[in-house]
Design a protein around this nucleic acid. Structure first.
Lengths: 126, 126
DNA sequence: ATAATAATGATAACAATTATCGATATTGTA
DNA sequence: TACAATATCGATAATTGTTATCATTATTAT
């Protein structure tokens, strides 16, 4: 039986409030302000729990994991200049369907990570 | 100046020979048979070097990194049943171009990871 | 052959994440 | 409301994947 917890609510709310795809530690530091007793392990625990319930998404961007409270289908771009992870909202152009046809099997979902420069950095660099 | 090394050749050859997208440790164990003195650190070092030269690809599939000696553009699928990472060769359907239009900025590349069941497991499960 | 130095093997260090455990908070039942 | 059962917590140890260090070895140009 899964019980309610203030900490889990806080993690979920904080994550949903922002669009910067924070790491577990960034979330922890942000929450620590209003919840001084919070433990990093609790953040990890609840992130895993929320991911299990499909309420959030984990972005396995290489080294350290980032999290996203927006579960509507969208893609991400890692900016080579500022290092940030930005959202790209667009149609999947039937990618899963096309892949199924090429590959066989059953394809349930997909994630796309783009690499390049975000609009801001792109302009800055010229 | 970068020198030639038997170990780097062995890593590269072994990786190119297979299609199972091994982890660094899997490569290490495989090579250890013919090269008993090999060190895991050497495998990591050379994988990083080869990736830097764009001769191989690192697949940041969540926790532990996997590597691919096939650098022709293609996608991957993680099978929920067997846990394997399989290749999917298909056209990118102008994904980068579409994303650029939606997002602005400059998009250089992208990676796609599908999740589902490979043909073999899909049939097995029914 | 020799000198210069890149690469190696062994292992320590590191960072991110997970497991452990006694204490605390939440929830269903009385 | 009180109580028992237990999920979750905070603190921290342990684990894991990866990188850094360093003395030794292999490769390359001369």
């Amino acid at each position: 039986m899964t019980k309610h917890s203030r900490q889990r609510d806080a993690v979920y709310q904080n994550l949903c409030m922002r669009t910067d795809h924070p790491t577990a530690e960034e979330l922890y530091l942000s929450l620590k302000a209003e919840m001084p007793a919070l433990s990093l392990a609790t953040v990890y625990r609840n992130l895993a729990m929320l991911e299990g319930e499909s309420k959030i998404i984990r972005i396995g961007s290489g080294g350290t994991a980032r999290y996203d409270g927006n579960i509507s289908p969208h893609y991400h771009l890692t900016c080579l200049e500022c290092g940030g992870v930005h959202d790209i909202f667009m149609d999947d152009a039937g990618l899963c369907k096309a892949a199924s046809e090429h590959f066989g099997g059953r394809i349930l979902s997909h994630t796309v990570m783009f690499t390049g420069y975000c609009p801001h950095c792109s302009e800055k660099i010229g």
